[in-house]
């Protein structure tokens, strides 16, 4: 799509694009290209020589138990975060959509956590779950649960999931509520006259109409859980205990920044890049379809 009436100018449009292009080339395309290039290189132990190893870094990755563990952690973490954040947001949005007093206030009180940084969400939940200073952490100990997320991997995973999902509920809530409000009341009234009970009405009428929103949010939530939750893990568990909460993104950081294993870190980045591209492509194909509704 484009405009019929336009300005003429030989140099001006390029000047207008210059700032965006400069930033994009220097900080996006160049490093992305380097990532792919470095993913096929290997440095010797002293960092003196590098050699071209083609796909060896990738082969090493896919046979490395620690990497596969991180991949599995990522699957568990992302699906749990998405399920928890989407489920509770949908439930709350359905409640807030009803004709009740104070619904505006409820909305404001449910929307604000969007502003909380993932790392900060992690810190807030740490105050609750810390084994010696946290309300719930101490409560667990009091009723005889051996609670210390700094030692127990399963507990650490549960905690990063709760903190990461908690922060994402507001976002999903806003979109579900907008989706619910765009459903014509006549459709709901027709279903009610047909004698459908509220639960049945929800699953046979409302939910199918919400499914485009739900699918869009599923992709957004997966992207969030994959890429934006670095702060949650870094602030709470540093990937530990052991490697129990080490996700793919966290491992890129550990191998690249702390272990200085550039070849492997770059190969891991390239794998992640492929995942983002796939997710973005799915998202856009779906949006194109939605336009035709």
């Amino acid at each position: 799509m484009r405009k019929k009436v336009i300005f003429r100018g030989a140099v001006l449009p390029y000047l207008l694009l210059l700032p965006q292009m400069a930033v994009t080339l220097v900080f996006f395309f160049w490093p992305a290209g380097m990532t792919v290039w470095q993913s096929m290189q290997r440095e010797d132990a002293f960092g003196l020589r590098t050699e071209f190893v083609a796909f060896e870094n990738f082969l090493d990755l896919f046979t490395d138990a620690i990497y596969l563990n991180a991949a599995w952690n990522t699957v568990v973490f992302s699906t749990s975060v998405a399920a928890l954040a989407l489920g509770s947001a949908l439930f709350l949005a359905v409640q807030a959509d009803k004709q009740i007093r104070g619904s505006g206030l409820y909305k404001t009180l449910l929307v604000w956590p969007y502003a909380v940084a993932p790392a900060l969400a992690a810190v807030l939940w740490l105050f609750i779950f810390h084994p010696s200073i946290g309300l719930v952490g101490r409560g667990f100990s009091a009723i005889g649960i051996d609670w210390d997320y700094r030692v127990n991997g399963g507990q650490a995973m549960a905690m990063v999931i709760v903190a990461a999902a908690w922060k994402q509920v507001s976002y999903n809530f806003i979109f579900f509520l907008a989706g619910l409000q765009s459903i014509p009341t006549s459709v709901l009234e027709a279903a009610a006259i047909d004698g459908a009970r509220p639960m049945r009405r929800f699953w046979t009428v409302v939910f199918p109409l919400l499914s485009p929103t739900a699918f869009f949010l599923l992709v957004v939530n997966l992207v969030y859980a994959f890429f934006d939750t670095f702060g949650v893990i870094h602030a709470l568990t540093r990937g530990g205990p052991g490697n129990a909460t080490e996700t793919l993104i966290y491992k890129v950081y550990v191998d690249g920044v702390q272990n200085l294993n550039f070849g492997s870190s770059a190969a891991q980045s390239a794998v992640l890049m492929a995942i983002v591209i796939a997710l973005t492509a799915i998202q856009f194909r779906f949006i194109e379809r939605r336009v035709h509704y």
């Binding site: 300005f7 994009t24 996006f28 992305a32 670095f230 920044v257 550039f262 890049m273």
Partner: peptide
Amino acid sequence: VFFAFPFRMVFFWMIFITLMLPVEVRIIPT
């Protein structure tokens, strides 16, 4: 939007593609 010039859509797609390159996937080279 308001100009016609060579490679207009190339620029547009170059900007668009940055969506797929979050900082997390290019940490070390950046």
